[in-house]
Nucleic acid binder design. Sequence first.
DNA 1: AGATACATGTAACATGTTACATGATTTA
DNA 2: TAAATCATGTAACATGTTACATGTATCT
Lengths: 172, 172
Amino acid sequence: MSLRHALLGLLADRPASGYDLLKLFDTSLANVWPATQSQIYSELNKLAAAGLIAVAAEGARGRKQYALTDAGRDELSRWLTETDPARNHRSEVLLRVFFLGEISRAQAHDYLAGLAADFAKEDQALRDLERSVDWDDGNLSVYGRIALEYGLRFSVMRREWAEWAAEQVGEQ
Amino acid sequence: MSLRHALLGLLADRPASGYDLLKLFDTSLANVWPATQSQIYSELNKLAAAGLIAVAAEGARGRKQYALTDAGRDELSRWLTETDPARNHRSEVLLRVFFLGEISRAQAHDYLAGLAADFAKEDQALRDLERSVDWDDGNLSVYGRIALEYGLRFSVMRREWAEWAAEQVGEQ
DNA sequence: AGATACATGTAACATGTTACATGATTTA
DNA sequence: TAAATCATGTAACATGTTACATGTATCT
């Protein structure tokens, strides 16, 4: 049920339409909690039916601008403070590593070396993102920066691990 | 479609029944690709229908021991070498961090400090696991060890990050 | 006038979780 | 013989993806 809390969280910052939220997901939440247009629109209707958000204004082209209700703000706060995050396991990368014994050592080495290169690229992309963001707007900036730092440390850790693993497997 | 490849990978090591596989998922793959009993049995039927596995022997209590077919081994190898892992994003932890501005600084600090403690516990659990495993049986051992090393580095990275983040937010 | 961006919605399908249902064999 | 373990399966529901469908407003 995290999608609904992602929507509540974004709407806590400012009112927005489904279309606005879709773009926010594609930019700020893309690396944290991706969601599709289809999911967003139907979840917004459920949230409105549950009274956690409400249409604050209607605009051109059928635009419905949603805002958090008091119940919605309470629910967001409750989720943040009272519920435990169900840490998500499931790593397709690790699943493959588990079964690398099924292919040759050389192929396994190349796979791991390729991973290292991918992670290095990801690291670079995050560093570019870091430079492109304006880090001067309050809370969202403080915690967005902390979330980005996680991504940076994560990509470095994975690159170093993949390099180490490739070495373990050996080139031949 | 990774569940099917997880099953193929386990069956590549040795033939097994759904029940055997269920236990393998709960032990060796629990931290990599969890699956439920319900999922495993229905996927085994689909894999058998697709000709990637076959019933090699039937035992007591309706036990069906499955083994990889040649087509299954090819598919596993194809998956390992020719397809790209769709890296899984989606971190409920990071989603919460993103919205910590909605609660007080003190509450946010406590949340991050609590995360650091959780990650420290996870690290300890993995180190216990490392000690309890017999690392002397070939491929599964080599690559299982590499996967575990990922988990160890990951838990350390997250603990250090959470400690850093708690400090950033400040205790008051 | 045509292209692009804005804006919302539904349908079909795949994947994943929880709970229910049933029965056989082994062990204490 | 009672409990635990072995063993498989189905049903209901939640979540997530892709594709289809429709129409309006703005910009060039």
